[in-house]
Design a protein around this nucleic acid. Structure first.
Lengths: 198, 198
DNA sequence: TTCGTTGGACAGACAGTAAATCCAACTTAG
DNA sequence: CTAAGTTGGATTTACTGTCTGTCCAACGAA
């Protein structure tokens, strides 16, 4: 009944639970508009956990931030399926834009800060670059699927249009636009650019 | 006794000179791909100046970074004149894009880091937002001059297309594109978007 | 017993402040 | 014109406080 290679001690389960508590605490702190700096100590206190436990679980602050980003990504409910099963390129790009905007919208404050920290954090920077590269290859696959050109100009431009920076700029501050509107705007720009260079 | 006409040209000149030395030292350090973190102490040592002198001259690390950005801006030789004297909107947008790409190209490494630091630095963040706002109003003026629509979608999209993030993404890493090529690409996207929504 | 957790102590960097001091540029009294 | 005093930038030294990261002895439940 109990498979040997499936270990689920109550202890490891509890460890996983504290790991989650730390992640959500970090996310909450990073969402706080008030605080600029978020220390490991602050995260530990917010998670009601010792600082050492955070280091045990994530190795370093960079590791914690990495895990946080991936945690956000996995919880965002992003779905690329509609884009790849779309009838034509235009609606495909529409769904592609929508998918990533949903992701960016899942926690823009935290994602913005993680992007900023990445500039000063080699480890985090590498992670975000890798994740961005996944968006790029997904885009190339999509363009190929619909027989569209995959020249560097087209790919780079649509890649940039679907980036977090673009989403953040179009929804941020005084530009009162919701996620769906931003997604449509981005898709419109992508289609316009593609049609013009086709 | 406080003499009213106490002028000391040589001293203020010397002070200005050390101020410049500190700025160039900071710029050099921030350009260095090797180091991720740049401390005030490191800047002071590189400028062959005491740490206190840096604080005397700039007040804080934020102040130093602010002064550095404006120094780069003033040295970049950016010129918006061609955009405003262009015969039509298309060439105007071309020159507009070119102008800002020249600015971004003047020191992309340092500008990228300053943008990153701004996420964790309220003072620097405010400065960069203000400078970005200047680009926005310039864009609005340009569009109005050529009788083009200044709807939020048009403005926001072209604003984002001419941002540093877009320039950086299109010229960075494996995308082997020089500044002029990036400028043309950005302008093409701006024109395509504008024509489609006109 | 084992293993996650805890609390504390510790070293090394870093931001920012403060006071005493040095020195060259400058002003002014004689 | 010169000597004496003033000013302001720069330096030195030392301090407070925060943060990352590491180490370790002890605790407590599985």
């Amino acid at each position: 009944m109990s498979p040997r290679n499936y270990r689920s001690d109550k202890r490891t389960a509890a460890a996983e639970e504290t790991r989650l508590r730390v992640l959500t605490a970090a996310r909450t702190l990073l969402s706080g508009a008030s605080t600029t700096q978020v220390s490991v100590d602050a995260v530990a206190k917010a998670a009601d956990v010792s600082r050492q436990t955070v280091y045990n679980a994530f190795g370093s602050k960079s590791g914690l931030l990495e895990a946080l980003f991936d945690s956000i990504a996995s919880q965002s409910g992003m779905d690329l399926q509609p884009a790849f099963t779309a009838p034509d390129l235009t609606t495909a790009l529409d769904h592609f834009s929508e998918a990533f905007c949903v992701f960016w919208a899942s926690d823009p404050l935290v994602i913005r800060r993680l992007h900023g920290m990445a500039v000063l954090d080699r480890v985090l920077d590498r992670l975000l670059r890798d994740r961005n590269e996944m968006r790029r290859s997904a885009l190339v696959s999509l363009l190929e699927r619909f027989g569209a050109g995959t020249g560097p100009d087209t790919v780079d431009m649509i890649w940039q249009l679907t980036s977090f920076e673009t989403y953040d700029s179009l929804t941020g501050a005084d530009a009162s636009r919701d996620t769906a509107q931003a997604a449509r705007l981005i898709a419109a720009a992508a289609v316009a650019f593609h049609e013009r260079t086709a």
